[in-house]
Design a protein around this nucleic acid. Structure first.
Length: 267
DNA sequence: AACCCCATCAACCGCCACAGA
DNA sequence: TTCTGTGGCGGTTGATGGGGT
């Protein structure tokens, strides 16, 4: 892949079949380790680091190079919500997968999907812009559900995912979450109070992209006996993490915001 | 056909932790 | 205690290929 001029006569870039063969044969005979001296002993023009990486990420036996299954993906998301970017720790819990592979898969697939679903891939919390639009509308006395003739705005997949994430949610306290994420929006909110005309084109893309729209009944379709790693039932999680009906319809932040507006608003 | 844009992922780089001298 | 070597980790890069124009 890379064509970086090699220093010290060491080769860089993609590995050839011949190099792979040499590395495999050497490791099979002598075992992995001693990476610094390995290239010389194995007759490779590579640095030890490169050999170790090639072995652990590609040549090592037992590596599963197939597509990620839904279960694996779910596991990665769960583990990431707990461990963060500890790719090696996540990989340790996924047999046959390497940290590099998981990291790549996260960055190219999962991260993107979470963003589309309105979930912040770093915090695993609903994205601020998602809350932002609802608070704006709410402060304007508008109910997005009514406007869009919807009961709720949530993708069933999102709700399922949120249920899973809730097991390790960083939003353990709704009030804390609202204080951290909603209060900074208050000046913005007030600014928009003066303009009550609703224009759907102003909605954030993330919101409009919620093409799968959820109805109240969909919440009922989630098995109540679903239990997460903490032993919480789905209902527990829904109660605790503001995923109940009234939270998925537009949360009412207006009282809270008016109380704090006078203190914090610069308008 | 040619070009551009973007997604993917193997590989590299810099840094850190740890063990042993 | 400090230094050095080694392995490991996470972030980033860039070659490649596919799709769109």
């Amino acid at each position: 892949m890379r064509k970086i001029p090699s220093e010290n006569g060491l080769k860089k870039g993609p590995w050839t079949e011949d190099e792979d063969l040499k590395l495999i044969q050497y490791v099979q005979t002598h075992g992995p380790g001693q990476w610094r001296t390995l290239p010389k002993n194995a007759g490779l023009q590579r640095c030890g680091k490169s050999c170790r990486l090639r072995w652990t990420n590609y040549l090592r036996p037992g590596i599963n190079r197939g597509r990620f299954s839904f279960e694996e993906e779910e596991t990665i998301i769960q583990l990431h919500s707990v461990l963060g970017n500890k790719w090696s720790a996540i990989a340790a819990r996924l047999p046959g997968r390497t940290d590099n592979e998981i990291k790549n898969y996260w960055n190219t697939h999962i991260r993107k999907r979470l963003l589309q679903m309105g979930i912040d891939p770093v915090t695993h919390a609903p994205r601020v812009d998602f809350l932002e639009i609802s608070s704006i509308l709410n402060s304007a006395g508008l109910n997005l559900s009514n406007i869009l003739n919807l009961q709720t705005l949530v993708n069933p997949q999102l709700l399922k995912l949120a249920t899973i994430l809730a097991s390790s949610s960083k939003i353990e306290n709704r009030d804390l979450f609202l204080n951290n994420h909603v209060n900074p929006l208050i000046p913005y909110q007030n600014h928009h109070n003066s303009n009550l005309a609703f224009d759907a084109s102003n909605l954030p893309n993330t919101l409009l992209n919620q093409s799968h729209l959820m109805h109240e009944n969909d919440i009922q379709n989630i098995p109540e006996n679903l239990v997460n790693m903490n032993g919480d039932t789905t209902q527990d999680i829904l109660m605790r993490t503001c995923l109940t009906d009234d939270c998925f319809t537009i949360p009412n932040y207006s009282n809270q915001s008016t109380a704090q507006t006078s203190e914090k608003s610069s308008f």
